[in-house]
Design a protein around this nucleic acid. Structure first.
Lengths: 231, 231
DNA sequence: TGTACATCAGTGAACGCGCGTTCACTGATGTAC
DNA sequence: TGTACATCAGTGAACGCGCGTTCACTGATGTAC
């Protein structure tokens, strides 16, 4: 009951002043009680922080579930999840600081907590990508674990920029565009003819210029369509 | 002279304990002087932090220059930059916390400083992507500004994970794989036949399932090769 | 070459503020009889 | 229905520690004459 209010106050304060700017007096003021009253609900300031982090983690995992139940297609679920995450961060600007800022670094308890959450979040993403791969929606050469980390990269920089600019940055549009590029990068394409590719003027005349073609060469094309979905 | 040592000490401390864990006593201990001696070189603790941030920013911009001078091909330069950034963060684990953690949030001076740096870094990226687009290395429908933000997303999550796991995460491999996918997502492909694309079992049977195909539909194919490079 | 002075990095003690935490106490709300 | 007691959220004063910062002072290294 009160715990909710405290967690929300912590989150709001983090958004305004960062993790370092959180003090019990300010939290108490936001909740509307005396500082000492908070100790009826939490043993220490650290416990309040821990609970807030735990709460955020739970909501992110809930996002995963919600996205997953929205569609059996893992890629659709992932796109949905991306948007849900963006919304979550938009509603609670303090989240990036709380999860990725320090404070996590200081106490080993927080670090363990965050690690536990991150690994379950990541494994959920890995599962989704692995399933997408099994269904032939993702190219065979790509590692689900690497894609999971990259997926997080689709919104984290937006969140940071959004924070630094104090809201003058459109996370939604950015996330949308990032997804489009990412999807294009991972999806199985029908047929690609290497014929017609040609070198460009700037390419190959400097030392490392020759490497320009390698990413394309590195591409591993799955055989035409895709593997069948087995379930 | 001493300023270098102090900045390095601040950075090292940030890596170990986060921004909140930095205190002048610890910095002084690392430098090898009494705490009060630091005030011969900086007016305040905040000034030490500011100088450290400025220093990191300068190194990142230097990375941009180095990558740019390495090859006239903007995409090659970007890949190079990605690896340089990864190296920089690997060498100074504190960077993510210092740039993206709080502390930036607290004093308006830090925020302005970071904003100024971020905007010049971003504009350098935007320039590179814009040039890549002009050269026809990047699909016409993509926004350079959005790609710039997304580019940052190629290594930021790795940096965070690398920090949380205390080094048990291979940033280099991750960055490499992320680049491959990203490159695949942005590059101009020779020719893509929509023929042969077929629906998959899980696709289209749920409510939002129909959206699965849209990202592919959103693709705007430039006419065959690319525009000529004009300079 | 020697003397007097300026400059400056560094020292250590001390100050003082902010802030997390404690503790005795209050007042309201159940609960037993 | 009324009385006695338990429970518990909340209060406000106070404590005490950590830490950033100051200041008078030292000692070494130039510099002028």
């Amino acid at each position: 009951v009160r715990r909710d209010q405290i967690a929300r106050a912590v989150l709001a304060l983090t958004a305004d002043r960062g993790v370092g700017g959180i003090n019990v007096a300010a939290v108490a003021r936001r909740v509307g009680v005396a500082p000492s009253a908070l100790y009826r609900h939490y043993a220490s300031k650290d416990a309040m922080l821990a609970a807030t982090i735990e709460r955020i983690g739970a909501r992110m995992l809930a996002n995963v579930e919600r996205a997953r139940s929205g569609s059996p297609d893992p890629l659709v679920a992932l796109e949905r999840l991306l948007m849900l995450q963006v919304d979550l961060v938009r509603q609670n600007r303090g989240i990036p600081f709380l999860l990725f800022g320090d404070g996590v670094q200081r106490s080993p308890g927080h670090r363990r907590r965050l690690l536990r959450f991150l690994s379950s979040f990541r494994s959920a993403l890995v599962d989704l990508f692995a399933e997408a791969k099994r269904r032939g929606r993702v190219r065979a050469g790509l590692d689900p674990a690497a894609l999971a980390v990259q997926f997080i990269g689709l919104y984290v920089p937006s969140a940071i920029l959004w924070n630094v600019t104090r809201g003058r940055f459109d996370m939604k549009v950015q996330a949308h565009r990032a997804w489009t590029v990412f999807h294009e990068g991972i999806c199985v394409r029908a047929r690609t003819t290497t014929r017609g590719r040609r070198r460009f003027p700037g390419e190959g005349d400097a030392g490392t210029g020759a490497r320009a073609g390698t990413p394309a060469a590195r591409r591993r094309l799955p055989r035409s369509g895709a593997k069948e979905n087995h379930r």
